[in-house]
């Protein structure tokens, strides 16, 4: 293989990693929320809120780190509103989840006009800087693929593993999963299902918010209105594909990220990128076709 092809492959793989981060964060959040028994249809909205408030935070404090914090917190709070209607007001979650997805871009557009004077694109802000890995960056192929990413890529891998450990190896995780499958048991133990669900929904908002923030202040350095464009729904496909398992969310988001990365390449070659883009959705359908009802009965999705 010539050098040119190698560097082409490297750049596609590097793009795959970049594309998978926002999906992965949101998908892990969604998995946590659904494990607790709350449908995660609002990820799209959380990501939108996260992307915008990250820019707003970075813009006002002139610090990307504060921006990230602001985006995560804002999305967490936004998710809590959904949590409140779902948990306390016993909302029909599919409908109210869609409602949250409608509110978020509307609210952001209004705030964009009020703060930045137009709803399409915000002012430029400081953004998270790429990290050059000490040794790996020197290695020709590996360096191009794995180095030069922002801290959020590594954070994503860490969060996935941590979430997996918490979900499967700690009492908190057992409670989380029981809240979704056997809420009676939780109540019988004198614990509050509602409290567990609120924590899970808040976590899902934070994580999806970070995913959104990644789009605005890591990949770019501004907010634009077509930034999230369905990634919250793709994240649903990711965690379903991953069987609601945070570590498997890594592989699933890499798969979806890859189709996104390769799509841009194919477009420049004049190939129908849409067909490639369809693949992960077909895969998810196939996976769903294999999920037995009995095993997944308690998962709402």
């Amino acid at each position: 293989m010539g050098n040119e092809q190698l560097s082409l492959i490297a750049s596609v793989l590097s793009a795959t990693l970049r594309m998978s981060v926002p999906l992965g964060f949101a998908a892990i959040g969604g998995a946590i929320s659904e494990r607790s028994g709350i449908i995660a249809l609002g990820l799209e909205g959380y990501m939108t809120i996260g992307a915008f408030f990250a820019v707003l935070g970075a813009y006002t404090t002139n610090s990307a780190a504060f921006g990230l914090l602001a985006g995560a917190l804002a999305a967490g709070i936004f998710a809590l509103i959904y949590g409140f209607v779902s948990i306390h007001l016993k909302a029909q979650q599919t409908v109210s989840g869609l409602g949250m997805n409608t509110i978020a871009p509307g609210l952001v557009a209004i705030l964009m006009v009020a703060i930045f004077g137009n709803k399409g694109k915000s002012a430029l802000t400081p953004n998270l800087q790429p990290i050059e890995l000490p040794v790996i960056s020197k290695i020709p192929f590996l360096g191009e693929v794995f180095s030069g990413h922002t801290i959020l890529l590594y954070a994503f891998l860490l969060v996935a593993v941590l979430s997996w450990v918490i979900m499967y190896k700690t009492p908190e995780g057992i409670r989380l999963r029981s809240a979704g499958t056997n809420p009676e048991v939780i109540e019988a133990l004198g614990l509050s299902v509602k409290a567990i669900q609120y924590r899970a929904v808040f976590a899902s908002g934070i994580l999806a918010g970070i995913g959104g923030a990644y789009l605005s202040i890591a990949q770019l350095n501004f907010y634009s209105s077509d930034m999230v464009s369905g990634r919250g729904f793709i994240a649903i496909a990711v965690f379903v594909f991953a069987g609601w398992n945070p570590v498997r969310c890594i592989w699933a988001s890499l798969l979806f990220g890859f189709t996104e990365a390769i799509q841009m390449r194919l477009q420049t070659l004049g190939m129908p990128s849409q067909i490639i883009q369809m693949l992960p959705y077909f895969c998810t359908l196939l996976v769903l076709a294999n999920i037995r009802t009995s095993r997944k009965k308690h998962h709402i999705m």
Binding site: Y82, V85, L89, K90, A91, Q92, V95, S96, L98, G99, M100, N101, T102, I103, A104, P105, G106, L107, A109, I110
Partner: peptide
């Protein structure tokens, strides 16, 4: 969008 969203979040609850 905000109005529509709020309407359905409220009515779904």
């Amino acid at each position: 969008d905000v109005l529509q969203g709020v309407i359905i979040v409220v009515i779904a609850s």
